[in-house]
Write a protein that binds this DNA or RNA. Sequence first.
DNA 1: CGCAAGATTGGC
DNA 2: CCAATCTTGCGT
Length: 173
Amino acid sequence: MARRLEFDFYNRDVLEVAPELVGKTLVRSFNDGLIQRFIITEVEAYRGAEDLACHASKGRTPRTEVMFRSGGLVYVYLIYGMYWMLNIVTGETNNPQAVLIRGLEDCYGPGRLTKKLMIGKDFYGENLMESQRLWVEENNNKYNINRAPRIGVDYAGEFWSSKPWRFFTNNIK
DNA sequence: CGCAAGATTGGC
DNA sequence: CCAATCTTGCGT
């Protein structure tokens, strides 16, 4: 079994953490003992209060509060009344950042993968360094990383929506 | 307190 | 192309 990623991995700038999360293994453990592992294939970085595409640009609210904490926690929110978005908080305290998990091997789409992994509201604030039901493991295989603009953030204006803060690999399906 | 919009998806 | 579906943040 591979090593679980710890605090020092997450507590860095999101632009360092996000591309390194691609190729790592997301692990979901269920009550009945079933454990599922998926390689992360696509992510997006949301970086600080100044990033108008980042929810934290709205300030510290009940929803965005967890992003203001230190790295390694989970930020989940409901979009379009239907889909839960899974994010991993990064960076130091009071520097609101998060990585949106957009794709896993065999499962593309941020709304689809949370449905598949049964991740919802009750994962808000989950500690990936201690959780018994969700964490990320090291993966020593190397994958090439591609960069592209983030998806669905035109509302933030071209300056922010054009930043190449989506990271993905095509080594894996 | 009302309301418009949303880090999406699947169906027509 | 567009409806679904409901939380959130902001304006009144």
